[in-house]
Amino acid sequence: MTPKAGCVRPYASLIGVLLAFLCLGLSARAQYTDVINSNRPGKSVSAYAVGTGVIQLESGLLYERREHSVLDTESGVFGADIALRYGLLFETLELHWEGTYVSESLTFNPGGEKETLTDFTTNRLGLKFLLYDPYKDPERNKPNLYSWRANNVFQLRNLIPAVSVYAGATFTLGDNPFYPGDPTVSPRVMAATQSRLTPRFVLITNVAYDRIGTDFPEWSYLVSLSHAFRNPKWSVFVENQGIQSDRYSDVLLRSGIAHLFHENFQADLLVGAGFKNTPARAFVAAGISYRLDYHQDKVKPIDEQESRIGRKAQKNKRKKSKDSGDGVLPDPS
């Protein structure tokens, strides 16, 4: 199956965005964390990249029960989620592949005829780039030495989010029964924000436009709120997702818990459901996140730093001498 002619223009726009990533990233920085930062157990995507030298796997198993009141069908869905994330070239850029492979056993009532559908329901590859990080400014990271409250409660400035953008493609390979008629490749774009409301609460939002140029383009949003307990190895989250397309629309709610076993290993569990009956959906999933951490901070050699500091001190000294008119000649070096 080949892409439709109408997809050529979105491809050109996609290439332009990717080139912009490469140019902007030369002057930007991100936040690498000593502890794994996973997108699981929810579906929302963090604004931050994993960091250069980091290879991260996020995977899990899922089961879902569906009942469609209009078509009078019911089904059980078994599947697996997998995502691979890699810090590419510089701190703010991440290469991200994610896929969901499922087998759906479908029963048609009242006759009881059965059909099995098996393929990828998600298969996409893209680049995520951090555009803005409010914590890049060292002053923003300084604690208030005179107020515990200022450091631990919500403040309006905490709503200012980190912002990233994503550009990639969704792949529909072969005769996929879940997306009949779709082209092999269709562009996908997304914006992601992340706000640290307090040291224990984090708010993430995603807005995505998927399957661009196909007969059934798809808009979606995600809003996720996570909370870390006093024992930071445990955290919980609640998440709302909305999907709008002529093929399928829904509003989903998820909630779950994650436990950090090691700085590079996390396990999680979630449950969720939809809000309509065409189809009614209820699901459960469990998974793990693991990273290989070869990250190295890029710091300038000590000798170079000392030389730069010395040159700056000499420049300030010459400026003061000139302003004071003491007749001291500039250092010719």
Rank of each mutant, 00 (worst) to 15 (best):
residue 188 R to T: 15
residue 188 R to L: 10
residue 188 R to V: 12
residue 189 V to S: 15
residue 189 V to T: 11
residue 190 M to F: 14
residue 191 A to V: 14
residue 192 A to K: 04
residue 192 A to P: 11
residue 193 T to Y: 03
residue 194 Q to T: 07
residue 196 R to A: 08
residue 197 L to F: 09
residue 197 L to K: 13
residue 198 T to Q: 09
residue 202 V to Q: 01
residue 206 N to I: 02
residue 206 N to Q: 10
residue 207 V to C: 13
residue 209 Y to A: 02
residue 210 D to Q: 09
residue 210 D to V: 00
residue 213 G to D: 01
residue 213 G to A: 09
residue 214 T to I: 03
residue 219 W to R: 04
residue 219 W to V: 07
residue 220 S to F: 00
residue 222 L to H: 04
residue 222 L to A: 02
residue 224 S to Q: 10
residue 229 F to L: 07
residue 230 R to A: 10
residue 230 R to P: 08
residue 231 N to D: 15
residue 231 N to Y: 09
residue 231 N to K: 12
residue 233 K to M: 14
residue 235 S to M: 05
residue 237 F to S: 01
residue 237 F to D: 00
residue 238 V to L: 01
residue 240 N to P: 06
residue 241 Q to H: 03
residue 242 G to V: 15
residue 243 I to H: 13
residue 243 I to M: 13
residue 244 Q to H: 07
residue 245 S to V: 02
residue 246 D to V: 12
residue 247 R to V: 11
residue 252 L to Q: 10
residue 252 L to W: 04
residue 260 L to W: 01
residue 260 L to I: 04
residue 260 L to R: 08
residue 260 L to E: 13
residue 262 H to E: 03
residue 265 F to N: 11
residue 266 Q to K: 15
residue 266 Q to Y: 03
residue 269 L to K: 10
residue 270 L to Y: 14
residue 273 A to I: 02
residue 273 A to M: 00
residue 276 K to V: 01
residue 277 N to V: 03
residue 277 N to C: 13
residue 277 N to E: 09
residue 278 T to A: 02
residue 281 R to M: 08
residue 282 A to V: 15
residue 286 A to Q: 06
residue 287 G to N: 02
residue 288 I to T: 06
residue 289 S to C: 01
residue 289 S to Y: 03
residue 290 Y to D: 04
residue 291 R to Y: 02
residue 292 L to W: 02
residue 293 D to A: 10
residue 294 Y to C: 10
residue 295 H to Y: 11
residue 296 Q to Y: 15
residue 298 K to V: 11
residue 300 K to H: 09
residue 301 P to S: 02
residue 302 I to L: 12
residue 303 D to E: 15
residue 304 E to K: 01
residue 304 E to F: 12
residue 305 Q to Y: 04
residue 308 R to G: 01
residue 308 R to P: 01
residue 312 K to S: 06
residue 313 A to S: 03
residue 314 Q to S: 08
